[in-house]
């Protein structure tokens, strides 16, 4: 009897030991994760208000004065306002085109049976796993041949394509989760195919569309490789390319570089912060369906 009691005591002590270990491990783990994620960007943010001398001699201290010199200068060094405008035009247009066109395709694939449906779906899905860096030369040639080299339209076309697989998967699984009788009622009422899609399906699937749009916007806003390959003038270059202006001979100051980094990253961070619940819940819906 007695030995059994001690054994039990010992066991509960051991469990408590494990509990303390796991909970302190989990707190430490989370602290490290937060530190590695936000320290670099917070450091860049504070440094963007410091002078070059302060950055070089006391890199961890807070700025002595909060001046916006770096931000003002960044606009002088590079055509940042031009790049912002380009990025907005390109990201918005490619988002609308991508979500609209791929939305139409996903809808008919999810809802109707037709010849070659499986072949089309599988072929389109392959694009998700294609390393797009392997296609830089032919895509460059194609864009060049159709006369869209160094144009916004060229980048819009390529970005619309780059987001094709993600949007297809998201919207396909979203349409599958919508009950079929909604649009059947519409058809009975005599509404046409296109009208049903626009007036019935799109509003019902709005959360799916919103998530696809956020992801597509971030993709177009952040893309760098094709932006440098397919454009060469400041008339058509986008925000991620702007940072290369800050390491040349005439514009070497750290303050402006750091200010530019903040201005390049901030729109993505704000957009994600505002829309994250939406994005997270839709990703769940997509992944549950596989």
């Amino acid at each position: 009897m007695r030995s059994l009691a001690t054994k039990k005591n010992y066991k509960s002590e051991k469990i408590r030991g494990i509990r303390i270990f796991t909970s302190s491990f989990s707190i430490l783990f989370q602290l490290i994760i937060v530190a590695i994620s936000i320290l670099p960007i917070v450091w860049i943010f504070f440094s963007s208000f410091k002078t070059n001398g302060e950055i070089l001699n006391s890199s961890l201290s807070l700025p002595k004065h909060w001046n916006f010199y770096g931000y003002i200068n960044a606009f002088k060094i590079s055509p940042l306002h031009k790049f912002y405008a380009n990025s907005i035009i390109i990201a918005v247009t490619s988002t609308i085109l991508n979500v609209f066109f791929v939305g139409m395709a996903s809808y008919v694939i999810a809802r109707f049976n037709f010849k070659f449906k499986k072949v089309i779906l599988i072929t389109l899905s392959l694009s998700l796993f294609l390393p797009m860096t392997s296609l830089i030369h032919p895509v460059y040639m194609t864009i060049n041949k159709i006369g869209l080299y160094d144009t916004k339209a060229g980048l819009i076309l390529v970005y619309t394509a780059l987001g094709l697989p993600t949007t297809l998967f998201l919207l396909n699984s979203y349409f599958l989760s919508i009950p079929k009788d909604i649009e059947e009622a519409a058809y009975i009422d005599g509404a046409g195919f296109f009208r049903t899609f626009i007036q019935i399906i799109v509003p019902v699937a709005r959360p799916g569309f919103a998530t696809a749009a956020v992801l597509q916007f971030l993709l177009s806003w952040n893309e760098f490789l094709y932006a440098i390959v397919l454009t060469n003038s400041k008339e058509n270059r986008t925000i991620p390319v702007a940072l290369s202006y800050f390491t040349s001979q005439f514009s070497f100051n750290y303050t402006s570089l750091f200010a530019a980094i903040v201005m390049v990253s901030l729109p993505s961070i704000i957009l994600f912060a505002l829309m994250q619940e939406q994005v997270v819940s839709s990703l769940t819906a997509g992944s549950v369906k596989g």
Binding site: I33, V34, I38, I41, N222, I239, P240, F272, Q276
Partner: peptide, 14 residues
């Protein structure tokens, strides 16, 4: 969760 996503959503060039 939000903090950890930040490096994933800003431009790789930045």
């Amino acid at each position: 969760r939000t903090s950890y996503m930040i490096p994933n959503i800003i431009s790789a060039s930045a």
